[in-house]
Computed example of a mutant assay.
Amino acid sequence: MSTTDVRAGAKPLVSHSRSTGQMIVLKAFLLIPFAALVLALPLAWGWGLNWLDLVLAAVFYVVATLGVTVGYHRYFTHGAFKSGRVLRVALAIAGSMAVQGSVIFWVASHRRHHAFADREGDPHSPWLFGTSPMALTRGFWHAHMGWMFQREVTNYDRFAPDLVADNDLRVVNRYFWLWITLSLALPALLGGLLSWSWWGAVTAFFWAGLVRIAFLHHVTWSVNSICHMVGDRPFASRDKAANFWPLAILSMGESWHNSHHADPTCARHGVLRGQVDVSARVIWMFEKLRWARDVRWPRAERLAAKRAKAA
């Protein structure tokens, strides 16, 4: 994949490559939770899983998922609304606890994805290798998680200069290791205190920590892979993004992906009747509480124009 842009004066797509040590750490944070997810079903059969673990996993799943969908994605990447300093920092920390990359890394990568969606330069399109069954199999793996194992790092100065210039976000970004630690340690601490046992801490660490992180990883990555291959496309967009309803609840509305790519800065992705979008409802609540302002809600005339083009 080319990492340069042919436009005169354009900054490179990639700023640097990860070191061997960074790659080892990255693979550990991707593969250890995945191993926990693989072990989850056999271990659930008579070992460890209880209602406390499920409740803790659900709570941390919701917080981290909304941190990604409302914070990383709709707010930081696309500017779907504006907020004050406290909510901005809180969303950045909550998104970091999903363990999908630091806030500036995530935003830069996703803005690059939109700039080159399903074309050369897109960091995680499933269509980069062709349309044969083997090429699409390779593309699915690449889009789902394979791209995360590459050494290249998207150029922050080109794709996220506004975040780089924000002192608060630079601090949150720098302490990404701390938010990962809290994402794993807080469930274990609460599990131990609420059960008043070391075993409660161990099972909470496994289920509400490792398994929860891995499950959220694959829900988010499915938007990159499945939602660019399968689903409905009621709106015109420049790429193959599709709406895939089975993921709507788990992804908090992110799988209405065709709608999103047709109107990226819109705060609501589920814009048609019956399309549940939990993240949009949270933004609506923020607006009612006056924590969010200048929210970019969908406009009927824009939706109609996009549907007409797709027809």
Rank of each mutant, 00 (worst) to 15 (best):
R158S: 04
A64M: 14
L184A: 08
R281T: 06
L30F: 09
Y72C: 10
W177Q: 03
L186M: 13
G191P: 00
P33C: 06
A304T: 09
R293N: 07
G67W: 08
F286I: 08
A115W: 09
S109K: 10
A8M: 01
P33L: 13
M148R: 11
S96G: 11
H218K: 08
L52H: 10
E287M: 02
W127H: 14
A165F: 10
H16R: 15
S102F: 01
S183G: 14
V164Y: 00
W256F: 03
H261V: 02
G146R: 03
A115Y: 00
A214N: 04
L250H: 04
V278W: 12
F286K: 04
L303W: 08
V25S: 11
H78T: 10
A36T: 03
R74L: 04
L66S: 12
G48P: 15
A241I: 02
V99R: 05
W221G: 01
I213Q: 00
K309L: 14
R74Y: 09
D294K: 12
W106F: 10
V171M: 11
S19T: 11
S17I: 11
G253S: 03
F206E: 00
S83F: 01
H144R: 02
L182C: 04
A241D: 01
S279N: 11
P264D: 13
F215E: 02
R74Q: 13
A92K: 09
A10M: 06
V202Y: 07
V211W: 01
T3M: 00
H269L: 11
A44M: 08
I226W: 01
D162K: 14
L66V: 13
F34S: 08
E287Y: 02
V25W: 13
D232L: 06
V282H: 07
A310S: 11
H228G: 06
H228D: 15
V99T: 11
T265A: 15
V25I: 11
T69E: 04
S2R: 10
V202L: 12
L26K: 10
A236P: 00
M134I: 11
W106K: 02
L39F: 11
A241E: 02
S132W: 03
K306S: 12
P298A: 14
N167F: 05
C227G: 06
A305I: 07
P264G: 09
A214C: 07
W198N: 01
H114L: 09
Q150M: 15
D122C: 13
T20E: 04
S195P: 05
M97C: 14
A160W: 07
L247A: 08
S237F: 01
F235P: 02
L91W: 09
H16M: 14
V153G: 00
W284K: 12
A160M: 09
T3L: 09
A280H: 05
L210T: 01
Q275I: 02
R74E: 07
W196D: 13
M145Y: 13
W198V: 08
G192M: 05
F206I: 03
T220G: 01
V89R: 01
V25G: 10
W45Y: 08
L194H: 14
T181D: 13
T181M: 15
D118P: 04
E120A: 10
H124E: 02
D53A: 15
